[in-house]
Design a binder for these strands. Structure first.
Lengths: 166, 166
DNA sequence: GAAAAACCATTGGTTGCCCCAATGAACTCC
DNA sequence: GGAGTTCATTGGGGCAACCAATGGTTTTTC
């Protein structure tokens, strides 16, 4: 394998020992690879990760406000505006004023949205298969379990919920 | 406990089922949390993640060129210039022309650099402890092993080494 | 019922990370 | 000594996460 000049993350096998074993470091690397793989796959449908996540949330939650969506997928209200606008422009969701609460937009998936979602889900799944190709199914489940517990430490006691990154 | 408005990643517990179990998704979340934790910790020493990684690599590799460093930690040559400049400005590394190859800069850690590195390493380690607080030591090792294999699939056969993003 | 507080969608702007292309100097190989 | 390559540097560009402010709307409180 010719080690070219390009330093594209993916081929940075050695890193300093002290760092290479740090979960935060590995997480960053793995996430970067996952992101690249998924983004690449989704791009064939003109979708991006956040768009897919939001569309998925909409499909699952039914008519829902943007603020609620933001809480669900964990993105900023500002970014949500962009995503929903894109989705709407593509005819994947409808954004209608909620008659019960005129502040809100009722976002709902369209037939076309469901169609696209079905495809992008398959694409995303396949990308994830490739991402975890080196793992056995059992190991993959293990990884998912471990990560899930890392992602939501809000349950534990000790110093959690510290300063939200000033 | 009050669920405020802010959607800062950390408190996005539920996400759509279909997505929540996707390694790529979890990886992104976990990485974001790890990044926040570590960055926050390092900030107390005025350091950033990349700076720490590079400094660590320099300390471990001895006098080394920037290009080599870039390959080691996996960042772009352009960004390396900035990082090394910052490090140099802070007196943490020295950047001297390599007499054996006048194209190269021999980057080397300074005494002060070692001192800072010792502190930032401790800081980084602690942040990682907090990141993995929900895991037992054995589980943490497990996670590291799993992630390591995800990060470098370059060994396996199947479609690996695919298009690097495009 | 009116003021106060909270919430929603939107606009505006910032930061950090990752990536690519081009340039001039220096080294290597033939 | 000329071609090809590597090095540091400069100049861009894209994407994700985040924070502050505003006008309109709902709920809360007195």
């Amino acid at each position: 394998m010719d080690r070219r000049y390009r330093g594209t993350m993916a081929d940075a096998p050695y890193a300093p020992r002290r760092i290479r074993v740090l979960p935060s470091w590995l997480l960053g690397r793995a996430a970067a690879r996952g992101h690249r793989l998924v983004a690449e796959a989704l791009a064939t449908e003109g979708m991006r990760m956040m768009h897919h996540a939001v569309l998925s949330a909409v499909a699952e939650t039914g008519p829902v406000s943007q603020a609620e969506l933001g809480r669900i997928v964990g993105i900023d209200p500002k970014d949500m505006v962009t995503v929903v606008t894109d989705l709407q422009r593509g005819g994947l969701v409808t954004r209608t004023p909620d008659p019960r609460d005129r502040r809100k937009n009722a976002v709902e998936v369209s037939a076309e949205g469901r169609r696209v979602l079905r495809r992008t889900q398959k694409l995303g799944d396949r990308a994830n298969d490739e991402l975890t190709a080196a793992l056995t199914p059992a190991e993959r489940e293990q990884l998912i379990g471990l990560l899930t517990r890392i992602v939501r430490p809000a349950d534990g006691a000790d110093g959690a919920g510290k300063g939200a990154g000033g």
